[in-house]
Design a protein around this nucleic acid. Sequence first.
RNA 1: UGGGGCGUCGCCAAAUCGGUAAGGCAGCGGCCUUUGAAGCCGCCAUUUGCAGGUUCGAGUCCUGCCGCCCCAACCA
Length: 568
Amino acid sequence: MSDASETGGKNFIRGIIADDLSSGRHDRIVTRFPPEPSGQLHIGHATPICLNFGIAAENPGAVCHLRFDDTNPVTEEAAFVEGIQQDIRWLGFDWGDHLHFTSDYFEALYGFALQLIEGGHAFVCDLDSEQIAERRGNLTEPGVESPSRGRSPIESRDLFQRMRAGEFESGSRVLRAKIDMASPNLTLRDPVLYRIQRETPHHRTQKEWCLYPLYDFAHSLSDALEGVTHSLCSGEFYERRPLYNWMIEHVKVPSKPRQIEFARVNLSYTLLSKRRLKQLVEDGSVDGWDDPRMPTLAGLRRRGVPPAAIRNFCQEIGMTPGEGGRSRTVELGVLEHAIREELNEHAPRVMGVLDPLKLVIENLPEGEVDELECANHPNRPELGTRRVPFSRELFIERADFMEDPPKKFFRLAPGREVRLRYAYFVTCTGVVKDGDEIVEVRCRYDPATRGGDAPDGRKVKATLHWVSAAHARLAEVRLYETLFTVEDPDAGGDDGDFRSHLNPESLVRLADARVEPSLAEAEVGATFQFERQGYFCLDPRSTPERLVFNRSVTLRDTWARVSKKAGG
RNA sequence: UGGGGCGUCGCCAAAUCGGUAAGGCAGCGGCCUUUGAAGCCGCCAUUUGCAGGUUCGAGUCCUGCCGCCCCAACCA
């Protein structure tokens, strides 16, 4: 697969842009990614990020603005502004000098509101939120007009200026567009444009404003102010498009952007609602926004997922129209495949034993150490080799030995010969048990097979990974499963109880793992393939005394499927 | 129930003016293998929610059903 950032991936939006360019409608494309700094970005945001920044990267002269849509102080925090920028950079994108904030436009937007008022298109409404809701009507009945609706532009303007001046209490008055209370599109029933909010200071403008614009007004007009040509958003905004266009038509704006909706992406076994992810963080169900089980970009990063895997994933799943709020649920396997594909190519191979079982080589004297040459990547010799110590006492994976193996198990068992990777053939001569528990496997090795090949050409059916007991480093290895046990943890929406589907085994800590000594020098964030096990990433909280590895993703495991099938 | 949108393989998704169902993931067989990994080869929709109609020809047009989704924050 080629890299998504280079080829982009054809889709209906790129088609529209190509047409707009060839028809001369635009000669320079401007897109924007407009996160609200009220939480961390997640995998669902990756698609629009790749789309918007990708389009900017592939069209000469095009740019993608990063604009923080910070119009609601009560949910927003400066910390998220920082985190979001870090995530986007990590994903591989850059906004140049186009870092913007809707709050930068508060004055301009205020002026637009005045224009609307003076043109008779907006009025100050004295109703409170409850009264407004009562009069909005419902799906089948039209709404009723506000008593304030007939107010003169002069009076509305005066009131609006006094709202700004802080003369009124929060919630006591709003500015509303004058559109159509009977519209079947509820969004057009005199929508609220500005609210008063005096209690919570804004993270950038502090107490400068006690008036804050709402989404439909602020977003469309900010796009216009920035000269955005294509305003791409998810399908849930489809029915607001008429309102988006209404703003642009009723205000003197420097440019007229076009809103296009795409179908939102969901992932199976995953929750992608910012509100609910926030709950998991706040109630301690996970260890912060960057918990490796979280679908956040920060979580995926800590888990060891390479950004290129996410870009490729986005390209792989494509982009489809979002009319009517369409969304799609992609199987987790597609993401895992993209991760494996990337890691298989780039992750150096090492040996690590997750669940150690001692193996003693009877015909190798104590104290003797053999340094064996191991390939860092069998398919890429240019990545070189490293030396790994081999000695009389080793650890192998407990799951690689069975005293009484079933038919299709071809790893180590009494009397059987296997290869220790890059080392020697060993034959099991017996076991030492403590009650029912196997505490040690005894073997003899064949010195003629050094490196892993038998000069007489004999074959073995299995190759095992191992570490030298005396040389291995102790490590904690964290295995992750899905955070939820059901495909759609968000089923039922607000009536559903997503917490009841939390997977109690989403994190398993193996505190007694042993890894080869070369890993002592690993850098935080580096990802390795533990041969035959999976891909593991050194956690930021790792210390030289106690290495901590996160499992990014397992290797495909045919044996697991075979044994499961056989075992019923 | 008012309005709107959508239904192509288990999941995602292609298919210019109607011209005879891409691809990816998953799955299944086999080859290869010093990772039961990776790689390689092959199989995997006579059929596009259903029923009719127009046409030489329909996933693409028409009609009628069926199903699913979105919209009633001073959130974004």
